[in-house]
Design a protein around this nucleic acid. Structure first.
Lengths: 357, 357
DNA sequence: CTGAAAGCGCTAACAC
DNA sequence: GTGTTAGCGCTTTCAG
């Protein structure tokens, strides 16, 4: 009933217990013949090494922790894909992935968890520019890699979406469609000020690309809600009536924009083009028309994050991996050639109408 | 630098190593005074028990595995919320949650994983009516609990959405709005035939409630894509032109329905009401109008699943927990009073138009 | 190339 | 109440 141990394997193969260990781990050469006998014994018994015992003796648990902020903003299908990919990558390298949901500021808990010596390393996601967790991890000396980038990532491995490039690509695409007055709807101002990476870097990318194209950058902060989207869009259009295209950072706000546009009698993409920066297919396909979006390489990031970490754990002189991956443009129905803004209808004829009306 | 051990704590508190262990686990009474000394020593040293050593000695790792199908259909925000809740529940009971992404049929891998004695129990999600994993788990003798229900769940703990009740509630709500011709859009026929629980049970619930209300049940299978949604809806309306309300199982199909309705010139909810069965807020709010939906109790399910499992692990004579939780109705903009079907516009005037048009 | 044996840090008898 | 000690199943010296 109980699982076979290495000792039983050794007895059955007529070798010393340690020889089985060596054969299993390749830590020391073992003659072809004995190895065969050992293998045979192992699968006759259905032997699997005991993970805890192995970890205790070797001081390497082969478990890594995925640290993620509990139910935070913007946690959706994209992040799930990421988590899945991370777990699969870990598994395929013989590791396990444990989930540590945790408030960004729950640094005390983190330390406790790590002191339990359960994990060899930590993968951190949703990293802020100045993230307490990074500093703590570094101080404790646990190997870790991160998804996202802190302010000065000089000496840590990371994988991140290239938000600057993504934003540039999106705007370049809009410019290619003939749009000249392009606005950028960022996350809320608080996020930006708090140094939230996507917000800060997308803004930088937008500045660059619009200036490089000889356009005037128009941008707004906007809370991650439909209501905020409506309000900000209304204000934006009043201030810049000639805007014909929008790049948005948040899907809920995007829906608000679409509502507001519809109430104005504007059709998408005929009167207004919208490209959503960083939207998964699942979400982008929920709107009418479906959103042209920059789709994040979630699976690649998850895999890359894990690989980076494991390399670091296994190789002594590993090279530091720092990778930026841009999102892929997926054209759906929310973008089209630039209209002549002067020909669009005016808002006065359509009474404001609630989303549930 | 290296973590303090129990021995150091014992020395510092002037007690035997075992006394520290007893004080820590409450396995044996320890006098108030010594316990205080031990506690003091523990937090002066910042002691945390070594998880692997403890697990090896006690034969209980305090790790549970979450078995989930890798990137399967319908895996989204809802499931993520569930996973997060499960991880939090585990953490708050002193357990860790490891992720085991795995094909439904990768039953051999499951066995290997379990033989490693890494986990005390397994939490299975996305359970099919006849799920190979359940049978294997039972045969191996690992404690487990499940989210979802297999065909004959007589002797295993589970937590599941009450799809029958959920569907009844949704239809009852529509009936209350005056609708009399209500159609049900199930998942694809293959899912149903494969015994996919949500599909089978929601269908049963729909039958019951419509008959009880003296209505004729109208239902269709429908693939989980917008295109399928459009096609099935068109066929449905041709066959049953008086249908004024729809209950749908899948969000993508729902979007297709909304497209098709819009092309017909029908307004939602004025000409057609839609209630989405089992949609998270995040997704339901992406459409225009936002979807009235039955929102799954994801967090509760995750927590319940973990609690059920841990109870089973810790108590000897645990009672079998089998819980069904209905979804909560959240009214948004896609439902309203029943229109007079005769007054709705006819499709001929509006040319068919692609989703990206 | 192989074997013997000393731990890894803790739990749980078994003593007193 | 507390102390002593034999493992848990494996890795890894140290001897051959």
């Amino acid at each position: 009933m109980s699982a076979p141990t290495m000792e039983e394997v050794a007895r059955r193969a007529n070798v010393a217990l340690s020889t089985v260990s060596y054969a299993l781990n390749g830590t020391r050469p073992v003659s072809e013949e004995t190895r065969m006998r050992i293998w045979a014994a192992m699968d006759e018994l259905g032997y699997q090494p005991h993970a805890l015992a192995r970890g205790l003796a070797s001081k390497r648990s082969r478990i890594i922790a995925l640290l993620f902020p509990a139910l935070s903003r913007g946690f959706g299908a994209t992040e799930l894909e990421f988590v899945t990919a991370a777990a699969e990558a870990a598994q395929s390298r013989g590791y396990h992935l444990v989930l540590w949901p945790m408030e960004i500021h729950g640094v005390g808990d983190l330390q406790q968890l790590i002191r339990q010596s359960l994990v060899d390393g930590v993968l951190v996601m949703e990293v802020r520019l100045n993230d307490e967790r990074i500093e703590l991890l570094r101080r404790i000396g646990v190997p870790f890699s991160i998804i996202g980038r802190p302010a000065a990532p000089s000496d840590i491995g990371f994988a991140d979406i290239d938000f600057e490039q993504t934003t540039r690509d999106a705007v370049t695409y809009l410019v290619g469609l003939g749009h000249r007055q392009i606005a950028f709807l960022n996350h809320a101002e608080e996020s930006f000020n708090a140094g939230y990476g996507p917000s800060v870097r997308a803004a930088a990318g937008f500045e660059q690309v619009t200036r490089a194209a000889g356009l005037t950058p128009i941008s707004r902060f906007c809370g991650d809600t439909a209501l905020a989207g409506r309000e900000v869009f209304e204000e934006l259009i009043r201030a810049h009536p000639k805007v014909t295209a929008l790049a948005t950072m948040n899907e809920r706000a995007t829906v608000g924009v679409m509502q507001a546009a519809a109430e104005r009698g504007w059709r998408i993409p005929d009167d207004l083009s919208i490209v959503s920066l960083v939207s998964s297919a699942r979400v982008a396909e929920m709107t009418l028309p479906p959103l042209t979006a920059m789709t994040p390489p979630s699976a690649e990031l998850g895999q890359l994050g894990v690989e980076t970490l494991i390399d670091q754990l296994e190789e002594d002189n590993h090279e530091l991996v720092q990778r930026l991956l841009p999102c892929r443009l997926v054209v759906r129905g929310s973008t089209g050639p630039s209209p002549d803004p002067a020909l669009r209808s005016h808002p006065k004829s359509v009474p404001p109408q609630g989303p549930t009306g």
